[in-house]
C-alpha cells in the first residue's frame, strides 16, 4: 500500500472534511452534519471510484490552496471556484491526475456557494461515531471537528488501480437556483391564509448571518397568530421553522435535533442540496409541492 498526501497551504473561506453524515445518533441529540450538497459530493466521489458517501473536502465561498505532495487523482464538483492546477484552468466534473508538487488553487465561488474535492482512495481520517464529518461544537470528525488550517496534511491509501476517465458524466450543473420546492410542515396549517399565500408567492433571501446550523430567511413576515408549541418537537435538516418575529429559519446539517418553533415547511433532501448552493443575499422563491 502506498500513501498519498496533500497539504493545505491556505484554508480559503471555510474548508472542512465532510461525508454523508453521522447516521444513527440523532436520538442522542447529535446533529447529522455531513456535506451540504449531497449530489455534488456524491458525484465527485463516483468520478474517482470512491464510495459515494466517502469523505470529501467541502469548500465554502473562497477556494483553499492545496499542494499535492504525492501523485493522486481528484475530481472537483459543485460551485465554480475558477479552479486552476499550477496556474492552468481545470474543469469540474471529471477526473484529474496530479503529480507531486502540483498546486490546486481557485478564487471566489461564482453562481453557487460550495464546492467539493474528492480524492481517489481510502482517506486516513478519524471517524468518531461512524463518520468523518466535522462538527465544531462537539469536536467530532476529522481534524477534531475543526475547519482546516494552513499546514493541515491529509493522507489516503492510494487505490490499486487508477480510476481512469468516465466517458459520460451527467452533471447536476450545480448553480444557484431561484426556485426551491418544499412540502407542508407539521404546523403548516397554523399559518393564516395571507401567510400561506406570501410563503408561496413572495421572494425570500438567504441572510448572510446563516451558517451550517441554519439559514435565516429574509422576506415577508409570516404569522401563526401567536400559536406556540407546548413542548419541544423533533426537527431535522430541511425543516422550516417560524420564529416569533415572523422570519423563518431552515434547519441545516449541523442544526439541533429538537426545537420549539412551529414547523411550517420541509425542504426535501434533493432540494436542500440546491438550497445550500444559493448565494447569500440572493433571491429565491418557494414552490409548494
Amino acid at each position: 500500500m502506498t500513501t498519498g498526501r496533500l497539504i493545505i497551504r491556505a484554508p480559503g473561506g471555510m474548508t472542512t472534511i465532510q461525508d454523508a453524515g453521522r447516521i444513527g445518533s440523532a436520538f442522542f441529540a447529535f446533529p447529522r452534519c455531513g456535506v451540504m450538497d449531497g449530489q455534488s459530493a456524491g458525484l465527485a466521489n463516483v468520478l474517482v471510484r470512491n464510495d459515494r458517501n466517502a469523505p470529501v473536502l467541502e469548500c465554502t465561498l473562497v477556494a483553499p490552496r492545496i499542494e499535492f505532495q504525492t501523485s493522486g487523482c481528484f475530481a472537483l464538483t459543485g460551485a465554480d471556484f475558477g479552479w486552476q492546477l499550477d496556474g492552468r484552468p481545470v474543469e469540474r466534473d471529471r477526473v484529474i491526475e496530479v503529480a507531486a508538487g502540483n498546486l490546486l488553487a481557485g478564487g471566489k465561488a461564482i453562481g453557487g456557494l460550495r464546492g467539493y474535492i474528492a480524492i481517489g482512495g481510502k482517506w486516513l481520517v478519524e471517524r468518531p461515531l461512524g463518520s468523518a464529518s466535522s462538527h465544531v461544537v462537539t469536536g467530532l470528525g476529522a481534524n477534531q471537528g475543526q475547519q482546516l488550517q494552513a499546514g493541515f496534511k491529509l493522507e489516503w491509501e492510494q487505490p490499486e488501480t487508477p480510476p481512469g476517465s468516465i466517458g459520460l458524466v451527467i452533471s447536476p450543473g450545480r448553480r444557484s437556483r431561484e426556485v426551491i420546492r418544499m412540502v407542508r410542515g407539521p404546523e403548516f396549517e397554523w399559518l393564516d391564509e395571507k401567510s400561506k399565500q406570501l410563503l408561496s408567492e413572495k421572494v425570500f433571501r438567504v441572510s448572510p448571518t446563516s451558517n451550517r446550523m441554519g439559514a435565516r430567511l429574509e422576506g415577508p413576515a409570516l404569522s401563526v397568530d401567536g400559536k406556540t408549541l407546548p413542548a419541544s418537537v423533533p426537527v431535522l435538516p430541511g425543516m422550516i421553522q417560524l420564529t416569533p418575529s415572523g422570519q423563518a429559519i431552515v434547519v441545516l446539517q449541523d442544526g439541533q435535533t429538537t426545537g420549539g418553533y412551529p414547523r411550517i415547511g420541509y425542504v426535501p433532501r434533493s432540494e436542500l442540496d440546491a438550497f445550500n448552493q444559493i448565494v447569500l443575499g440572493d433571491k429565491f422563491r418557494f414552490v409548494l409541492l
Binding site: 447516521i23 445518533s25 440523532a26 423533533p234 426537527v235 431535522l236 435535533t257 429538537t258
Partner: peptide, 22 residues
C-alpha cells in the same frame, strides 16, 4: 425502536409528544 435496528431506518428522534423516524 432505535435499538431494534430496523432495516432501512437511519435515525429516531423522540420527544414527549412525537417520535420522528428518518
Amino acid at each position: 425502536i432505535l435499538e431494534a435496528n430496523l432495516a432501512g431506518l437511519q435515525d429516531v428522534i423522540a420527544t414527549e409528544g412525537e417520535i420522528c423516524l428518518i
